[in-house]
Amino acid sequence: MSVAGINVLVDETRARMAQAQAPLLSVRNVSAYYGSIRALKGVDIDVNEGEIVALIGANGAGKSTLMMTIFGQPQAREGTITFAGQDITRLPTHEIARLNLAQSPEGRRIFSRMTVRENLQMGAAVNGGRHFAEDLERMCTLFPRLKERIDQRGGTMSGGEQQMLAIARALMSRPRLLMLDEPSLGLAPLVVKQIFSTVRELNRTEGLTVFIVEQNAYHALKLAHRGYVMVTGAVTMSGTGQALLDDPQVKAAYLEGGQH
């Protein structure tokens, strides 16, 4: 049996085992509003420990809103969100961020006048900078490009480098759940591949749970164990990554134009 084959087996076993326990993150019947506009309409999503879960959907479907709602900004008006058994629906954003879940937000939101190292220090703020040196070393191994540019200002880095920095910054808090909003946005295919393979590696070697929002449906579903499809604020479809990739509706709506 090839290494890849064993990996698939490991993944499947892990996914099955995880499903037996309570999910790490569970979003139940959540609705969120911008003023009177209902951006999320009773969303249900589960992310199990050790899984990579992808959320795909058209522009304006509410994917980023869901990610931000999990982070309490805007807060869910209806429904509940639990993380690791704790109800986080009403917690303020900064307290949620201290609970072993981290995000790389839409648009990266790098601190542009601060250096790469300072950005990473901000990522480590929740654990008070303990094991900072060790984690910094780890990020430099994961993203060698960051090591080269450790004292460069965040804002002067290229888009791909900034994305790596955003992910690394999120990882500095040693999260159990990493949430990524469109990490492939505006990046060259090669860089996208690189970033996705890093994410897969983290999942395999360290059991990091990943929730990823993507426009790039093909790559995201290839990467993910399971996926959800969101249309105008509601989840319309879910299944394993492969099943969604093979689904004719998903194919027609999100994979048109070949395999990117």
Partner: peptide
């Protein structure tokens, strides 16, 4: 630099 990013970093 960025208030929203700050909050989501705890």
């Amino acid at each position: 630099e960025d208030e929203i990013a700050c909050r989501s970093l705890g």
